[in-house]
Computed example of a mutant assay.
Amino acid sequence: MSLINTEVKPFKAQAFKAGQFVEVTEADLKGKWSVVFFYPADFTFVCPTELEDLADHYAEFQKLGVEIYSVSTDTHFSHKAWHDTSDAIRKIGYTMVGDPTHAISRNFEVLIEDAGLADRGSFVVDPQGKIQIVEITAGGIGRDAKELLRKVKAAQYVASHPGEVCPAKWQEGEKTLAPSLDLVGKI
């Protein structure tokens, strides 16, 4: 079953953000656009490159009213230690959620049960708390924050322009499509 258009399931977790430990729940994802960004583990290899890339583009996401939540099955204590010791991770201003119970990873269907780690999963959640974008990649394949940003812009555009859709490679300001009988077979 696809998670598209399903509501985020309830959860409660501890997180690290801006030098503080904070509690995060599914309610925090409502009322604004959110990106929930799962990665396998702290102190690893591809993960810091992805999280640093997100950190480098965080201001752009915030300008769109989007909050980012990175999630791994590590604890919030591990997130703080990684933040304190890695130049790449020190750049992070968004919330780093700990999921040692695996509840959130199970809710989003990214838990690798036999490893106790999360797959690389990116989820875009709309202000109603419904999942609009799902992307899951194999462990060795890093994601691109610019492409995620483009997809968020497309999701926001479609949400605010009923009856219009964004074609492949759509960029903000480019022409969209209005599906209709007259358009069938003409693309």
Rank of each mutant, 00 (worst) to 15 (best):
R120L: 02
K151A: 15
R143G: 01
F108M: 07
V97C: 12
V71K: 03
A81F: 11
R106C: 05
E164T: 15
A88W: 05
T95L: 12
Y69S: 05
Y157V: 01
Q128H: 03
H102G: 03
R150C: 14
G140K: 00
K91H: 07
T73D: 04
F77Q: 13
A115I: 00
G140Y: 08
I68K: 00
G142M: 03
F123I: 03
P162N: 10
F123L: 05
P100D: 11
G140S: 09
I136Y: 01
S70T: 13
T137R: 09
P162Q: 09
T85G: 14
Q128M: 01
L149Q: 07
Y94M: 10
Y94E: 07
I141T: 11
L148S: 08
I141H: 00
G140W: 04
I89F: 08
E147R: 11
S72F: 08
D84I: 09
S70D: 11
R143S: 02
V71R: 04
I89R: 00
D119L: 02
K146I: 09
L111V: 08
A138Y: 01
A118Q: 06
E147A: 07
A145N: 00
S105D: 02
A88Y: 12
D87S: 14
D74M: 06
K146P: 05
H83R: 09
I92N: 10
H76N: 10
S160E: 15
R120F: 01
A115W: 02
N107L: 07
Y157S: 10
